[in-house]
Amino acid sequence: MYEKPLPVIDPTTRPFWDAAKAHRLVVQRCQDCKMHIFIPRSNCTSCFSDRLEWVEVSGEGTIYTYTIARRPAGPAFKEEVPYAVAIIDLKEGPRILSNVVTDDVEGVTIGQKVRVIFDDVTEDVTLPKFVPAES
């Protein structure tokens, strides 16, 4: 049984999680100013347009910052330490927080290129995670 915390999915965020389950990474894009937006919301944070659409993105990104957890975030993560949590600048602009899944956790660094993978953690939930791009 999967013991780690699962997202509390709501109608606003459902399209993101449905796409992840289909192994697609999607974010919103403003149809007026064309800015890509994450996290899911009802209006553009740049021009305040409410004409947002869901678009698939490349899944390529660069590590903006990270931390290596040496102590788990609760008992469910005990077996994982040390593990990398990073904020990733997606190629299309928005930032997303995720894990960098790698055997070389000490090699994780700012500026590292990463690409998305999909971890089907339960029947209902798939978590987008990232791996070093060269792997």
Binding site: F38, I39, T67, V85, S98, N99, V125
Partner: peptide, 26 residues
């Protein structure tokens, strides 16, 4: 892990120290 935290908490970021750690790294 509701609202924006549904995109953080599932990844095991130690809270709140992990967030401050990422600021320190940067």
């Amino acid at each position: 892990p509701s609202f924006s935290l549904q995109f953080d908490t599932p990844y095991g970021l130690p809270n709140p120290v992990g967030a401050y750690a990422m600021a320190a790294t940067r």
